Deep mutational scan, measured.
Amino acid sequence: MDLSALRVEEVQNVINAMQKILECPICLELIKEPVSTKCDHIFCKFCMLKLLNQKKGPSQCPLCKNDITKRSLQESTRFSQLVEELLKIICAFQLDTGLEYANSYNFAKKENNSPEHLKDEVSIIQSMGYRNRAKRLLQSEPENPSLQETSLSVQLSNLGTVRTLRTKQRIQPQKTSVYIELGSDSSEDTVNKATYCSVGDQELLQITPQGTRDEISLDSAKKAACEFSETDVTNTEHHQPSNNDLNTTEKRAAERHPEKYQGSSVSNLHVEPCGTNTHASSLQHENSSLLLTKDRMNVEKAEFCNKSKQPGLARSQHNRWAGSKETCNDRRTPSTEKKVDLNADPLCERKEWNKQKLPCSENPRDTEDVPWITLNSSIQKVNEWFSRSDELLGSDDSHDGESESNAKVADVLDVLNEVDEYSGSSEKIDLLASDPHEALICKSERVHSKSVESNIEDKIFGKTYRKKASLPNLSHVTENLIIGAFVTEPQIIQERPLTNKLKRKRRPTSGL
């Protein structure tokens, strides 16, 4: 017993010596996670971090007073192994002897410093981030199933929210409404489509400006004509009531908005009720001829604005009016007729031209339509002016008669200019590109209106002035400009410049 007691005391002394060697000089306990400095002193990692955080910048070693920084600290694995072995020896000594260790306080702390507990403390002390800490805590505590279930439920809930957000973003663009038309193969669909197009076009005519009305009406008319041609002859009974509906809707729209509806009346003529396609083609032919005449008058307007600064050229074209007008009339009417003589009366030419125009518009179905009313009214106005011209010709002399006839021709041009508003800008460009020769010939008609105004002003003063002067240069210039014009009389060319000069002198006297 005595020997055993001596041996136990010796073992205890050895353990105490080893414990003092492996103590931390700051906390005076076994080193936890030993860290060595540049001066080869060993301290606990937790104690050194606490010391360095007390001051900004480098701190001093507690043993040798040298500078220490966080970067200079290094882990010493050898001392950590020695500490672990010492703890194992102490545990074995207690089991063999059955005696508690003399320094129970220190031993209890040593026992608490088992490797499992050290790992837990290291995970908390090290600044490795929240995710690494959570992982280490889960690994160190596998015995708690409640914690695992809560963490898994949190992760699953987070994943569910992310997935639901993604699915919502994908589903939202798919919620856009999609309209699908289910059509049938019955023959009544074509008639319904035609009526739908006509009503939609009328609404567009009321909303859209004048520049786009003609294009819309032309497209709708083409669509309706194609649909009529596709149907068989057996379905004509269905077409006639639908066309009557079209007429009623167009008349109502014309009564409500007459000014807006006139812009599309000329282009919509071939959508009118037709028994066969031949009647629609004839109407299209007549409309094309009318559009040609209207576009020519538009060309004359532009030329008149350009040549208004040259009064000499405008005056020299006075007698070329009849010849150029004959050529335009021959090209406007498709019928083959002989040219009228140069010395014939211009009023007779106008009456013949009106007689040619009237039969074209005397179809029984055309008179029933609303768009032809505008053309009939313009023709009636022309006839009224010609009836007035006959009365004026009986009273005035030959020279005054010529000037009045020219004035009436200008009035006719004004009437025809009203129809110019109905034609589109695209048709003007096509006419100029296809028929430049006709445009040059028809330019002379509009330029002549300037000389007509001068004659009217001469009649106000009650006299006409003449001068025997020749202007050969002007006649040559005008002959080169206009290709299809005829030779003019030299006496009238000489008379016109004198009248304008005298007018300039006598205007201030009349004002006084």
Score class of each variant (00 low, 15 high):
residue 6 L to H: 15
residue 9 E to G: 04
residue 16 N to G: 08
residue 17 A to G: 12
residue 19 Q to V: 14
residue 19 Q to P: 01
residue 20 K to W: 08
residue 20 K to T: 02
residue 21 I to K: 07
residue 28 L to W: 04
residue 29 E to H: 02
residue 30 L to F: 04
residue 34 P to D: 03
residue 35 V to M: 06
residue 37 T to W: 01
residue 38 K to C: 14
residue 40 D to G: 11
residue 44 C to E: 00
residue 48 M to P: 01
residue 48 M to T: 07
residue 48 M to A: 12
residue 50 K to T: 03
residue 52 L to R: 02
residue 53 N to C: 11
residue 54 Q to A: 13
residue 55 K to Q: 13
residue 55 K to T: 08
residue 58 P to C: 10
residue 65 K to R: 07
residue 68 I to P: 02
residue 75 E to V: 07
residue 76 S to G: 04
residue 77 T to A: 11
residue 78 R to T: 06
residue 79 F to Q: 01
residue 81 Q to M: 08
residue 81 Q to C: 14
residue 92 A to E: 01
residue 93 F to G: 00
residue 94 Q to V: 06
residue 97 T to C: 00
residue 101 Y to R: 04
residue 102 A to G: 08
residue 105 Y to Q: 01
residue 107 F to C: 02
residue 108 A to M: 06
residue 112 N to R: 08
residue 115 P to R: 12
residue 116 E to C: 01
residue 118 L to V: 07
residue 118 L to T: 08
residue 120 D to K: 14
residue 122 V to C: 01
residue 123 S to L: 08
residue 123 S to K: 05
residue 123 S to P: 06
residue 124 I to S: 06
residue 125 I to Y: 14
residue 126 Q to F: 08
residue 127 S to A: 06
residue 127 S to W: 15
residue 128 M to T: 02
residue 128 M to K: 05
residue 129 G to I: 13
residue 131 R to D: 12
residue 131 R to S: 12
residue 135 K to S: 10
residue 136 R to G: 11
residue 137 L to V: 08
residue 138 L to M: 07
residue 140 S to W: 06
residue 141 E to Q: 08
residue 142 P to L: 12
residue 143 E to V: 06
residue 147 L to R: 06
residue 147 L to I: 12
residue 147 L to T: 06
residue 149 E to F: 11
residue 149 E to S: 06
residue 150 T to M: 14
residue 150 T to W: 02
residue 153 S to R: 07
residue 156 L to G: 06
residue 163 R to L: 10
residue 164 T to L: 06
residue 167 T to L: 05
residue 167 T to V: 11
residue 167 T to P: 12
residue 169 Q to P: 12
residue 170 R to N: 14
residue 171 I to E: 09
residue 175 K to F: 03
residue 177 S to Y: 03
residue 179 Y to G: 08
residue 179 Y to S: 11
residue 181 E to G: 08
residue 182 L to V: 11
residue 183 G to A: 10
residue 185 D to Y: 08
residue 189 D to R: 04
residue 189 D to Q: 05
residue 190 T to D: 04
